[in-house]
């Protein structure tokens, strides 16, 4: 439980922000825009493999929201604590392991990711979108938050300025949101791009999150997600272990 102080600190900050209307609004605004534009606008009346487009879209928006919120919060926070507020020095000087620091930060990212995706779920339920809260859905959501929060620690540790985190976001996170099956099935993409798409971790979240039961492709995506989660988590620990100002 050495990670708990790190996690607890983030929860104090989150609780404070939750009471500001701006936080909930900014968490919801992007998925709502996508929901309106793609779901109710462009996608109205579309069907994908016998599925209403909105029923297809909403799990993808949950994956997208959880990725954005887990990753962005953690990456920005770590970058800010390390380069600007210097609060990160306190973590490093404490008698807790690098793994505890990463676990605390990642779990706080998971909470933020789950909070954001639950807001999307509420919007879905209010608009009577069909959603299946199955094991694949829940495991994909949790693992997605954990995976991207771990990536957030990695990026927060390697960036040299606040602008750098935006660069990673622009070149990695935003394109991943559009090309990995959030808004349309991956099968519709030209074959030449498919190898790149299947390398992207969010692709596998989008596959797993739409499964009603865990079949072979779902299991494969689960393993790929586990692989990325362990990889990012391990790199994050290594970066903190070797931290030096």
């Amino acid at each position: 439980m050495n990670w708990y102080p790190i996690f607890f600190r983030e929860m104090i900050i989150l609780k404070r922000r939750l009471f500001r209307l701006g936080y909930i609004f900014s968490t919801l605004i992007i998925p709502i825009i996508y929901f309106l534009v793609f779901g109710l606008g462009i996608g109205r009346g579309f069907r994908i493999s016998e599925t209403e487009y909105l029923d297809f879209l909403l799990p993808g928006l949950c994956a997208l929201s959880s990725m954005n919120n887990s990753y962005t919060w953690v990456a920005n926070s770590m970058n800010f604590y390390r380069l600007y507020s210097k609060t990160f020095q306190i973590f490093i000087q404490s008698p807790i392991s690098a793994a505890s620091i990463v676990t605390g930060e990642v779990l706080s990212g998971v909470v933020k990711g789950l909070f954001a995706s639950s807001l999307v779920v509420i919007v879905g339920l209010l608009t009577e979108v069909k959603m299946n809260f199955t094991f694949p859905f829940l495991s994909a959501l949790f693992l997605n938050c954990f995976m991207f929060a771990s990536l957030g620690v990695v990026v927060g540790m390697i960036t040299k300025s606040h602008e750098d985190t935006a660069t990673y976001s622009n070149f990695l996170i935003i394109p991943m949101g559009f090309f990995t099956g959030t808004f349309f099935p991956i099968e519709k993409m030209p074959s030449i791009f498919k190898p790149f798409i299947y390398i992207m971790p969010l692709t596998h979240t989008n596959i797993l999150i739409r499964k009603v039961s865990l079949d072979f492709s779902g299991l494969l995506s689960l393993f790929v997600m586990l692989f990325y989660t362990i990889l990012f988590f391990w790199i994050a620990i290594d970066l903190i272990k070797n931290y030096s100002e």
Partner: peptide, 9 residues
């Protein structure tokens, strides 16, 4: 030397 107190707390 540089204040590293947590400004959010």
């Amino acid at each position: 030397q540089e204040n590293n107190l947590d400004r959010e707390l």
